[in-house]
Amino acid sequence: MGTQASGQGALWNSGAGNAWVEEQAVIDQMFRPIETLLVNAAASSAAARVLDVGCGTGGTTLALARRLGRGARCTGIDISEPMIASARRQAGQEGLPVDFVCADAQHHVFEPGTFDVVVSRFGVMFFDDPVAAFANLRQATRSGGRLHIVVWRSAEENPFMTAAEHAARPLLPGLPVRQTDEAGQFGFAREGRVRDIVTRAGWRDVRMEPVDVPCRFPESELIDYLSRMGPVGRALDSVNTVTREGVISKVRTAFNAFVSGESVSFRAACWLVSAQ
Rank of each mutant, 00 (worst) to 15 (best):
residue 2 G to M: 10
residue 2 G to I: 15
residue 3 T to M: 00
residue 4 Q to K: 06
residue 9 G to F: 10
residue 9 G to K: 11
residue 13 N to L: 10
residue 17 G to Q: 07
residue 20 W to R: 01
residue 22 E to P: 12
residue 22 E to V: 13
residue 26 V to S: 15
residue 28 D to H: 06
residue 28 D to S: 05
residue 31 F to G: 03
residue 37 L to T: 06
residue 40 N to S: 12
residue 40 N to C: 06
residue 40 N to M: 04
residue 41 A to F: 01
residue 43 A to G: 11
residue 47 A to E: 08
residue 55 C to G: 02
residue 57 T to Q: 11
residue 58 G to W: 01
residue 61 T to P: 00
residue 63 A to C: 05
residue 65 A to F: 04
residue 68 L to H: 11
residue 69 G to F: 15
residue 70 R to M: 07
residue 73 R to S: 14
residue 79 I to P: 03
residue 80 S to Q: 03
residue 82 P to I: 03
residue 85 A to C: 01
residue 88 R to F: 01
residue 90 Q to V: 15
residue 92 G to M: 02
residue 97 P to F: 03
residue 105 A to F: 10
residue 111 E to L: 09
residue 112 P to M: 13
residue 113 G to N: 10
residue 117 V to L: 11
residue 118 V to N: 12
residue 119 V to I: 14
residue 124 V to A: 06
residue 128 D to A: 08
residue 130 P to R: 15
residue 133 A to H: 05
residue 135 A to F: 02
residue 139 Q to I: 13
residue 141 T to V: 09
residue 143 S to M: 06
residue 144 G to F: 09
residue 146 R to L: 01
residue 146 R to I: 00
residue 148 H to S: 13
residue 151 V to E: 06
residue 152 W to N: 13
residue 159 P to R: 10
residue 161 M to W: 13
residue 170 P to C: 08
residue 171 L to N: 09
residue 171 L to H: 10
residue 177 V to Y: 09
residue 178 R to H: 06
residue 178 R to P: 02
residue 181 D to H: 05
residue 181 D to S: 04
residue 181 D to T: 03
residue 192 G to C: 04
residue 203 W to R: 05
residue 204 R to C: 00
residue 204 R to V: 00
residue 205 D to C: 12
residue 208 M to L: 01
residue 209 E to C: 03
residue 210 P to M: 02
residue 213 V to Y: 10
residue 217 F to M: 02
residue 218 P to L: 01
residue 218 P to V: 01
residue 223 I to V: 15
residue 224 D to T: 05
residue 227 S to F: 08
residue 227 S to Q: 08
residue 234 R to Y: 04
residue 237 D to A: 12
residue 237 D to Q: 13
residue 240 N to L: 12
residue 240 N to A: 15
residue 241 T to Q: 13
residue 241 T to D: 12
residue 241 T to L: 14
residue 242 V to S: 09
residue 243 T to V: 14
residue 247 V to W: 12
residue 248 I to W: 09
residue 248 I to M: 11
residue 248 I to T: 15
residue 250 K to D: 03
residue 258 F to P: 01
residue 259 V to K: 05
residue 261 G to D: 07
residue 262 E to I: 06
residue 263 S to F: 10
residue 267 R to P: 02
residue 268 A to T: 15
residue 271 W to A: 04
residue 272 L to P: 05
residue 274 S to Q: 06
residue 275 A to H: 09
residue 275 A to I: 02
residue 276 Q to G: 12
